Amino acid sequence: MPMSPFLISLLAVIFSVCLFAIVKGGPAERRAGLIFAAGTLGVELIHSAVPRDLQGGLLLAMDGFVAGGFLLVALRYASAWLGAAMMLQGFQFSLHAYYFVTGAKRDNTYALLNNLDSGGVLLCMLIGSIIAWRKRGAGK
């Protein structure tokens, strides 16, 4: 299925923030950027290669992967941005769990909440990366 220009733009923003975190962020931001980029790739693979009726459990597992990865990073590097990102990722996991367990069809509300949540995680990662970059610059 061809991707819409809107989806291509969203993916460009996601991978730009992840790349910024990897290049300019500290160790926590680098790891979080890699985890989020891998999760995004996984989600896109699920959407493109798995039948729609089987996607729910795999999307839930992918959110579990990202949340678990963020938890491991948070255990090593404590920071406010990472705590906020983990809370948002936990919400996203519960959103997927709700739709998976109830068997509800993924509708516009699901898409809106999912996209707002992903944007919040990206914003947290971007803020954390900018802070780490500025701290490193101030130390020189």
Rank of each mutant, 00 (worst) to 15 (best):
K105M: 11
L34P: 02
R52N: 09
W133A: 13
G56R: 09
A32P: 02
L113T: 03
V17Q: 01
G139L: 13
N114L: 09
W81P: 01
A74F: 13
T102G: 14
I46Q: 02
A111H: 06
R52P: 02
D53R: 10
R136T: 11
N108W: 05
T40E: 12
F100W: 15
G57L: 08
R106L: 11
Y99N: 02
L19M: 13
L112Y: 13
M125H: 02
A78S: 15
Q89C: 05
R30M: 13
A104C: 05
V50T: 10
D107P: 03
V23R: 10
L116E: 07
K105T: 13
D63K: 06
N108K: 10
K135E: 15
F93Q: 01
S48D: 07
G64P: 00
F70G: 03
L116I: 07
L7P: 00
M1C: 09
S16D: 06
K24H: 11
R30K: 15
V66H: 00
P27L: 08
L122H: 01
Y99D: 02
A132S: 15
R31N: 13
S9E: 09
D53S: 14
W133T: 05
L126R: 01
V13N: 06
K135F: 09
G64W: 00
S9P: 00
Q92P: 01
G69S: 10
Y110R: 05
M86F: 10
L116N: 06
G90T: 11
Y98H: 15
L10S: 09
K135Q: 14
Y77T: 08
G120I: 00
N115H: 08
E29A: 11
I127M: 08
L112D: 09
A28I: 04
G56A: 14
L122E: 02
F70K: 07
G57A: 07
F6T: 11
Y98S: 12
Y99K: 06
